[in-house]
Design a protein around this nucleic acid. Structure first.
Lengths: 213, 213
DNA sequence: TGAATTCTGTACTGAATCGTACAAATATAT
DNA sequence: ATATATTTGTACGATTCAGTACAGAATTCA
């Protein structure tokens, strides 16, 4: 059996940690996700992770650094989900619909109320006065745009779109659809309604010949 | 000359107010708009409005009530701007483009950094744990949807869309375009880029025969 | 076994926060 | 003038918050 790679089996010297950094970051993300960055206190994060404050500081630095790590992790996971949905050899309309379903899985995850997108729900608020969060958000948005546009260009090559369609323009609409779903999910709109919204958007983007899904 | 209606000329009894409630609410909105609801302290609002804390409480109630008033006022103004853009007898593509330009005027207003949409940038964060803000956001979103859909149906009657187009589906894309602009503006994307984005979106929504604007 | 190392948990500090009490100020009503 | 009503501004209390100091606990190395 291969040596455990996730912790790099470091044979650390002193008292062992009572927490797993990865799952601690995940629970810290959950804490921020609900009330947002500013309204979430370190005490709440401490409670959510089971780590006391000094351990939080030792592991992640201050609240801001912890949030940046949570944000980066969320981008990784959510961008990967979108790419996985778009990458396959599915028809275009199916691929788009799958991307939105994957997003909805994330937006409706967790135990409490639906929280929508972590970025739209918590990071966007901070972008005005926080350049690091702003840069992260801007980069992530462009990345999603590029993924949609690449898939739509492929669709055009495969004659899945009208020949006169503009992949760049449609990519904007595809990204925009994801953003409006992100907002509405957090605002309490039911998942079924958002699925229906996604279906209509996909049909409109793909040129109304859809109906498969 | 008609009696001053805005203050109802009430001949109040005690010491007169040193502030104008309307402009105070406007400046309080500005204060919230930058850092968001949770990160904006009453001291900052006090500084922005020139009112001291007891006067703020007397005029608006606590921080939460003040924010709700600011949110309601923002919805009033921004929904009216959208309706004015869509209501006229302009061609559909011009009307849509004008709606996005009106939104951009709001999103890029103020002295400091661009703040995007007040709702998307500050209210959406609070929707998970605050039912009053959630209800306000949900209602406003539906209202914009309805405005776009009404204009698109009119466009279909006037043969400004393909006969097989689905106004409800396109209305979703029109709303979504506004939302993605709101997010991107706050994330620091330049206004010129967002105008170009809006043009492409309008062209795609209206069936690519655009080019007028 | 003892020294060195790393983490845990309590407890503390200083600052920021919200909300309000209270006296002074400024107007109208009689 | 005097009483009444309303707002202003200072000042205070109670709470919460971020960040850290420090002692004790748990582990590895020699």
């Amino acid at each position: 059996m291969v040596q455990n790679k996730q912790t790099e089996a470091p044979k650390r010297r002193g008292r062992p940690r009572a927490y797993d950094p990865q799952s601690a970051l995940e629970r810290a993300t959950d804490a921020f996700w609900g009330a947002g960055y500013a309204a979430t206190s370190l005490d709440q994060i401490s409670a959510a992770t089971g780590m006391n404050r000094p351990s939080l500081y030792a592991a992640f630095g201050d609240k801001h650094a912890l949030y940046l790590e949570a944000l980066a992790r969320y981008w990784r996971i959510s961008l990967e989900a979108t790419r996985n949905a778009l990458d396959g050899d599915r028809p275009l309309d199916e691929a788009l619909m799958l991307a939105y379903e994957a997003a909805l899985d994330i937006y409706f995850s967790g135990d409490g109320r639906p929280r929508g997108c972590f970025v739209v729900g918590t990071a966007v608020t901070e972008t005005v006065e926080d350049s690091q969060i702003r840069d992260s958000v801007a980069a992530g948005l462009r990345s999603i745009d590029a993924d949609f546009e690449a898939r739509l260009r492929l669709g055009q090559e495969r004659d899945e779109l009208g020949g006169d369609a503009d992949p760049a323009g449609l990519a904007i609409l595809a990204s925009a659809t994801m953003h409006t779903i992100a907002i509405r999910a957090r605002a309490g709109i039911a998942r079924a309604e958002l699925q229906e919204l996604a279906r209509k958007a996909v049909a409109a983007i793909c040129g109304r010949q859809a109906g498969a899904i």
